[in-house]
Nucleic acid binder design. Sequence first.
RNA 1: GCCGAUGUGGCGAAAUUGGUAGACGCACCAGACUCAAAAUCUGGCGUGGUUCACCCCACGUGCCGGUUCGAGUCCGGCCAUCGGCACCA
Length: 829
Amino acid sequence: MIKEQYYPQAIEKKWQNIWDEKGCNKTTENSDKPKFYALSMFPYPSGRLHMGHVRNYTITDMIARYKKMQGYNVLHPMGWDSFGLPAENAAINKGAIPSEWTFKNIDYMREQLKQLGLMYDWDREVATCTPEYYKFTQWLFLQFYKKGLAYKKEAAVNWCPKCATVLANEQVIEGKCWRCDSTVEKKYLSQWFLKITEYAEQLLQDLDKLEGWPDRVKIMQKNWIGKSFGTILKFKLAENPEIEIPVYTTRPDTAMGITYVVVAPEYPDMDKIVTDECRAKVKEYQDYAKKASEIERLSTERIKTGVPLGTHIINPLNGNKVPLWTADYALIEYGTGAVMAVPAHDTRDWDFAKKYNLPIIEVIRNPEKTDDSPLTEAYVDEGILVNSGQFNGLKNTDAKKAITDFAEKNGFGYAKTQYRLRDWLISRQRYWGAPIPIVYCEHCGEVPVPEDQLPVLLPTDVDFKAEGESPILTSKTFVETTCPICGGKAKRDCDTMDTFICSSWYYLRYTDPHNDKLPFAKDKANYWMNVDQYVGGIEHAILHLLYSRFFTKAMRDFGLVDIDEPFENLLTQGMVLKDGSKMSKSKGNTVDPDEIFEQYGADTARLFILSDSPPERDFDWSDAGVEGCYKFLNRVWRLVYNVQNQLDITNLTYEYATLPKDAKALARKTHQTIKGVINDINNSYQLNTVVSKTRELVNAISEFSQNKKDYTAEEKAVLNEAIVVMVKILAPVTPHLSEEIWEILGNKTSVFEEKFPEYIEEYTKADAITLVLQINGKTRDKIELPVGVSKEECEKLALESEKVKKFLGDMNVIKVIVVPLKLVNIVAK
RNA sequence: GCCGAUGUGGCGAAAUUGGUAGACGCACCAGACUCAAAAUCUGGCGUGGUUCACCCCACGUGCCGGUUCGAGUCCGGCCAUCGGCACCA
């Protein structure tokens, strides 16, 4: 007996309980089916789900359920990226305890995810902030350490002098502290780095293997790694030839045009290369440079600043003596921290030289320039060398090699491949993260914590508001410890790891989440990996995805897995907007998923979020749109209700060729829909058109059944086939409703045990085609033709068309282009 | 600033990848049902012109230019909006 009304809340609760009780979503490695690993980027437990989450997880769930119906053994897990700044801010602002705050959020959000009807295997849930998890985050750090891939060096942090604390970039607002508005400075601390640069070449090369990734993401990663071929040139200080200043350049061909050299304000040996007269000014400039961010410093728009050091270097190519400056457009992190300046052929150098009246020497001649008139702007393109002594007349592309060879032969330079990618700074002067498992012993120095003593637990006796370099320093139980080697007094490292470390290996933990000996067992990881479909926001295109790729390669080299890349296919979904801008609390344009579930049910929310935009594009939430989807599901329900007396899925056979016209049309629509839906899913998951096509099928079924009272057996079969297909196609999108209708159809098992429908090619073909007739590319007529008309016949019919004749008038036909079964274009004058 | 995207009716979008622009939906308008409203059903719906209607014509995919028999789709140059920029995740 079918209820007349669609009650989504009751249906959803019912099926969520059934799935839970029957353990429908449990996954094991023991299966004859091929495996499929579907993964969403796990959330930070901020408190409540937002629509971005709903979108991400619905897309992945639709894919996971579809693959399950395609006969795969599907792993679809979920967890929590639960270390991070907001928990600590809650501690600072509201006196919350970070772990309690975090787990409360997790509990709430888990319930919300369950309400969305996601096909997760909750037995595999992980949270990065649990000791069971971060034990292995620490363990992995130790593997990096053992292989020499983790090292310490001085690096800058944002320092608020008033609060006397380290700030995250996010806490620096226009150069000021977020809490007290003081100007933020740089402070140098000894911090841990991971040698991602050691993998730069592999990370670059293997991008080619990632055929299932969007090009834009690969291009961004490629540019981020930033491989460049260049030359190191070493310049001696004129005032003291003992001191050498190496520079890195990708334009050695312009080296004869060097008119000054710039070192970064943080240049380590600055003291030795400044004259006493300039020292004070340079110091002042270094202080000024501390206040600018890197983005500001590199901007070509920014007004260039700098001060001379009073010293000079000798250009070994031509013996020229040129001044040495410091300027903040040179970055200490890139190359050698010093750059040669050729204002004639570099726009930043040009601006700087113009401002400070430094000479400009043209050495690359634009082929279109015929005289020695002065340049009016930097010429950065290719040309012929001039003013370059023995290298005059060479093409600049050839001169790169010639000058590098010359430098190498004479001992003042060599070719060098350089990457823009820098080593990964992982130390955070924060509480809510995985402690770095290192102790510092008075006698033995830096000592890694032995693996059997992991985890190094986070202390709880911490003052979050204290001044200093890390809140953990205030713990009485944590800092002081004994040395694992000599048993003497030692101090723990009080920094925690960047949370990106935790999220760089979680996809492997899901394959073996309860292992207490290892992060994961190799055979389980090898069974499930790679992730077949990874879905998440485009904002992670570089950092998270690059770090995860790096971790995978490192773990492979540690012998933990046998894979080179973690994510086979990547889908980067767009943002959820409301009224044209990103949903945010500050704009007050958020929509709470809970309210939508309550009012319309999860199926409506799922349907809407998939239907209006393709996954990769931004999605504009509209209240009217949700309403429309809710009405559609009601229509589906009513459709089934109205034909309840005709429902019979025990006999779905019919003779297609001899069907009456309307039944044939419905059968064709059914098979065209299956074909279209499968194509759309295979074609980079065009889920919005999957929904459109499903709507078209529903429209066709309604139309067919509307005024029909007496069905022949064949008509009934056609109708029931269409309904079965409709339910199965809807199942990945609206799982609860589909299960309910599936049950109404008389089935005792879940619709997800069913195979996704297959189509019969013959049934998708139309009886007739429409031939479009154009004159000079403009459509003038359309004619209906049976399939199988020859090319010649098309042309003949086209020229016979009354409308074509009318438009041709007395023009002469020059050419006729025929696209078989589609279009005829008559070119006429 | 650098790197990467996006731009089509009032709105979200579609277009078998160079071949009928606007499928499907939202909003709106008209009609049916109703005492009435909601819900539901039917029809209309790019702009302008001609036409009572049917029909027909011109224009139209951010802007300018190019390639082509034919361009939303390819090429060059602009403009606008959005994402990332290494300590938010």
